[in-house]
Design a protein around this nucleic acid. Structure first.
Ligand code: MN
Ligand code: MN
Ligand code: MN
Ligand code: MN
Lengths: 237, 237
DNA sequence: ATTTTTACTTTGAATAGTCAAAATAGCAAG
DNA sequence: CTTGCTATTTTGACTATTCAAAGTAAAAAT
């Protein structure tokens, strides 16, 4: 019986609020600091006025700070709640892939609903059954139960050094077709590739795969594939 | 004048509506036919006025028939939807017990939320992983994917023949403490017992358990324990 | 320094679900 | 019949979430 009750504000957030928090957390990461109402609105698929009123609500609930005409930003409490939602999302995704054998291209959609329905009790069991994993099927790191998240800064296929073998570490694009393509081309997390060349003007990145030969990617796609320098296999220099 | 939406049962019902449908299905079973607003309201924990307006909504959605001052009753479509929700609920409960090792005394509560968040895709996987089970942890039968449900009429410890060995088949009371008690006393589904005697005036039922000796139950508790005649073990008459 | 553009905020309205309290219908007695 | 009692239905209100459209501030352009 865990006593890991999250901070005060963690009371009961509706799934709507949870989704906004998650989104704010992401955009805050990406765009440093304040998130504008326009960005928030289009990311959430609502009109700007809706974003404004939600920003006010979040502020009122102590989950965010809102400055009119400037933007919103999560408070520490809001950030913690966001991280818990993200933890649920990612753990559920991994569970769906590992235990229920769902395809990694569909689990994001499923997790989007389940993340609001799994209790701490259930989540703990999943965590244990999966042996306390640190990354989801897309390579996204899983926040700890205490809401701590370590995101190593990584290069992508769009900016890593040429000619040096890289291991695919994380796929940022959760689009179904994209993920299916990535998998069918042998580029899922764990795969090893080398960037042979980049023709920036043409927006093309040429890859050399382990035993599958060449493959060209557009720059946007390449940028969505984060990598880590491959550990040289024994015998190689 | 609202637009009548009646495209099969596949429409999207909110979790609120799903909960009402489930409840109506149960009460319709129990009380045969029409369900009064008072009953519905108190079962759902809302005031009667709320039940009335929900009954109207369900009727408008083609999920129920509503006669003012008389009651509601599910249509075929509403019944189908209810059975699908019940299927999700029970399959999820079994999944939580078998795969995630949760205690059977808490899964009802968990399933109450998850039943609205699991997709058909996920449900199918659970079903397969559990090898197409026909009953949940409490012995409640699981409706088929087509919405068919077979509920064998059973006797309970309150009305089965005396002195004849019975197998516990189903526990109707989902109360946490009750379930914990039942399990701790070795009366979970599958267990074998014999009703030694009943003192109706005192409301007491005396049981003889396999290798645990005697146990007395109140009549209400006994009535919540459905049984089936035990198959005589080889060697016995 | 105006004007124009863009981004944002307000206002008014809608839907789902709910409660409190007042109005009623149906039946039960007297 | 007339009064009561109980179960229901209505009405008015409130929260959460959202949109449409009108108003406004700040930034960009001229
Ligand atoms: Mn979500
Ligand atoms: Mn993911
Ligand atoms: Mn439910
Ligand atoms: Mn059950």
């Amino acid at each position: 019986m865990r006593k890991l009750r999250v901070p005060a504000a963690a009371a009961l957030a509706s799934s709507t609020v949870e989704n906004y928090l998650k989104q704010l957390y992401r955009q805050q990461r990406a765009g440093g600091g304040m998130v504008g109402m326009g960005q928030l609105a289009s990311a959430m698929g609502v009109v700007p006025g809706t974003a404004t009123s939600m920003a006010k609500s979040l502020a009122e609930a102590g989950l965010a700070r809102y400055t009119p005409r400037n933007g919103v930003r999560l408070t520490a409490a809001g950030e913690q709640l966001a991280l818990h939602v993200i933890r649920r999302h990612r753990l559920v995704e991994l569970f769906l892939v590992k235990v229920l054998q769902l395809d990694w291209s569909v689990v994001d959609e499923e997790a989007e609903r389940l993340e609001h329905a799994v209790s701490d009790r259930v989540l703990e069991r999943m965590d244990a059954l999966l042996d306390f994993p640190t990354a989801d099927p897309h390579g996204d790191p899983i926040p700890s139960a205490h809401g701590r998240l370590h995101e190593p800064r990584r290069l992508s296929l769009a900016n890593c050094p040429l000619g040096r073998p890289q291991t695919i570490a994380r796929v940022l694009n959760q689009d179904r077709d994209f993920l299916q393509f990535v998998e069918s081309e042998g580029l899922a997390p764990g795969a090893e590739v080398t960037v042979a060349s980049r023709i920036v003007a043409a927006g093309a990145v040429k890859l050399q795969r382990r035993r599958r030969g060449e493959l060209s990617l557009g720059l946007a796609a390449a940028a969505a594939m984060l990598v880590a320098p491959a550990k040289p296999a024994r015998g190689e220099g």
